[in-house]
């Protein structure tokens, strides 16, 4: 059963959009990471977007870079990350889990083997940040073979041809970029993205969820009003971890509150 389709159906019935928080797996350490993810779910996250830490994250701004370094410093490996996902999946059968990572981590075990391990751990979708559509064929083929959605990015500068390809190839959801640049709340998402959203609708793309530069409930509300199926907040979520490294209880409370606040803004 497709968890994204189920989620969108439930949200449509409730007249809501999706709120999807992102964190880096293993940040700040293995044990806390599991609690962090539980705190996000407790706050009402509709789906999860989880990163595997990589040494050279070229699409990420300073906040997510630092989270990857925290995890790598603790020796967190891709296998450890999948172990966290496996445990989350055992406790939460319904929630869609997306993985966000860089291509070299997929190549290391081999593309097919990596996707097989992800499917086995309970991953629903994979976004490879440095694989554009034109290099995507072997990744999409592996995803298809394992019943995983390969998530495609729709950037604000997408050519007509890229949009057509997103229409043909996207599944699960489409990651709509709110602006150019790298992840981070330093620059806010451009609103509304309604022009791009209607183009994606025309080409029959999977439903768009807006990310990059989302940190406030007003932005979530604006994204949904502009026609997005939801919003993703990465750096804003990760920042809460960074700000409370010395006080885990506070970290978890603030994460739950943050997600609840963002989720409350998803009513249509």
């Amino acid at each position: 059963m497709d968890r994204y389709a189920q989620m969108f159906q439930r949200l449509d019935n409730d007249k809501q959009g999706a709120f999807v928080p992102f964190v880096t797996l293993g940040d700040p350490d293995m044990e806390t990471s599991l609690e962090v993810i539980e705190a996000l779910i407790a706050g009402g996250a509709d789906a999860l977007e989880l990163g595997i830490p990589f040494s050279d994250p070229i699409a990420d701004g300073p906040t997510i870079q630092k989270s990857a370094i925290r995890a790598l410093d603790k020796g967190v490996s891709p296998k450890d990350c999948l172990a966290i996902i496996r445990r989350i999946r055992e406790r939460h059968r319904e929630i869609p889990i997306g993985l966000l990572l860089y291509s070299n981590l997929v190549l290391a075990p081999g593309i097919d083997e990596f996707y097989r391990q992800c499917a086995e751990a309970g991953v629903d979708s994979i976004l490879v940040a440095d694989v554009p559509i034109r290099e995507g064929e072997p990744f999409m083929a592996a995803a298809k073979a394992q019943g995983i959605h390969q998530i495609l990015i729709a950037p604000p500068n997408a050519s007509e041809q890229t949009l057509q390809q997103i229409g043909e190839l996207s599944s699960g959801y489409t990651y709509l970029l709110g602006r150019a640049g790298v992840t981070g709340t330093e620059t806010a998402a451009d609103m509304p993205a309604s022009n791009l959203i209607s183009k994606l609708h025309e080409v029959g793309a999977a439903r768009p969820i807006l990310g990059f530069g989302i940190s406030k409930p007003e932005q979530v509300k604006a994204a949904i009003e502009a026609g997005a199926a939801g919003a993703i907040a990465g750096s804003a979520t990760v920042k809460i971890i960074e700000q409370h490294l010395e006080n885990k209880a506070m970290m978890l409370t603030r994460l739950t509150e943050f997600v609840a606040g963002m989720k409350a803004a998803t009513n249509r």
Binding site: A59, D130, E135, N157, L177
Partner: peptide
């Protein structure tokens, strides 16, 4: 070789 970069940079590389 190839073009393993975020989708966002593809138009700049094409240009």
């Amino acid at each position: 070789g190839g073009m393993y970069v975020p989708e966002l940079l593809i138009p700049a590389l094409d240009q």
